[in-house]
Nucleic acid binder design. Structure first.
Length: 121
DNA sequence: TGGGTGACCATAG
DNA sequence: ACTATGGCCACCC
């Protein structure tokens, strides 16, 4: 793998950091969406940026539970970015989150919204 | 400078 | 319920 991995500029570094920080706050056994994080961070439609930021999550010093972040439908859209195609699902199932057809079952129940839970952060 | 792309989302028909 | 479209913002040719 060439070293083209994502260059984090000074400008977006803080944003990346914020994203990772929120993701680390997701409790075990829960999951949230890119849009929820984006919303919590204040950006209106920066959901794509969150996803892009997650692309760099693997190279962070501190562990980032990227498997707890899925899209609005609870679908594991980022699974192809994991070391192995099944890594994301395995990680979720190890937290008692049921996954079927690349989709979190009963997503509503495990959904964790930072702007609700971290209201007074 | 400009066009294509992306681990997204909301809206409209 | 499903597809199409636009918006978003940063990155990479």
């Amino acid at each position: 793998m060439p070293d083209n991995s994502i260059k984090i500029s000074e400008k977006n570094k803080d944003y990346f950091d914020s994203v990772f920080q929120v993701v680390r706050l997701i409790p075990k056994g829960r999951a949230t969406s890119y849009g929820a994080i984006s919303n919590y961070l204040g950006t209106k439609s920066g959901a794509r940026m969150v996803g892009w930021a997650m692309n760099a999550s693997h190279s962070q010093k501190e562990y980032v539970p990227a498997h707890r972040v899925v899209n609005r439908n609870g679908m594991l859209t980022g699974k192809h970015h994991f070391p192995s195609p099944t890594a994301m699902q395995e990680a979720l199932e190890s937290e008692e989150i049921l996954v079927k057809d690349d989709k979190i079952q009963n997503f509503k129940a495990v959904y964790w919204d930072p702007s609700e839970e971290l209201k007074f952060d």
